[in-house]
């Protein structure tokens, strides 16, 4: 079920990127970024206030900041890149970055993931993906 959920997330993600890009065209990338995350602050702030009041609080740690910072940078860079090269090419290049990053994480057991041996076919696959990107770009 989790894998199907991951695929479905991708469908929604493309739509989200499109709408954020449209908002950035009629305002600015920076305003669209603040609006996008402001909606989340409002929604989860209210939800936390309603449902999370009675739960014991966990001490705050500095690394809780990182995902939000990275998320904000993702939106800004996303909007900028999509305007330059279009959705499909951006997704393909982003995919290359994702695959290399995820193979590295799995190979070395980073970020709490268990170590997975990387089969040579996976690196060949990355090479073939790069060839596909070359075809798209040139």
């Amino acid at each position: 079920m989790s894998k199907w959920l991951a695929y479905f997330t991708g469908l929604i993600l493309s739509l989200m990127i499109y709408f954020n890009g449209q908002l950035s065209l009629v305002t600015t990338t920076y305003i669209s970024n603040v609006v996008y995350h402001g909606i989340g602050v409002l929604f989860f702030g209210i939800t936390l206030f309603v449902f999370g009041r009675n739960k014991s609080s966990t001490p705050f740690k500095w690394h809780y900041i990182l995902p939000g910072v990275m998320g904000s940078l993702t939106i800004i860079i996303n909007n900028f890149v999509m305007a330059e090269i279009g959705v499909t090419l951006m997704i393909a290049l982003t995919m290359l970055g994702q695959v290399v990053t995820s193979l590295t994480i799995d190979r070395f057991g980073l970020l709490g993931k268990s170590v997975s041996k990387i089969h040579y076919k996976q690196w060949i696959g990355v090479g073939v993906m790069s060839m596909g990107l070359w075809i798209m770009l040139f």
Binding site: A6, Y7, G10, L13, S14, T101, D106
Partner: peptide
């Protein structure tokens, strides 16, 4: 619940479809 490589691949397939 899933490996990092699946976190990368599966949403991509969905993104590509919609893209």
């Amino acid at each position: 619940r899933i490996k990092a490589i699946h976190i990368a691949i599966l949403p991509f397939l969905g993104q590509m479809t919609m893209g």
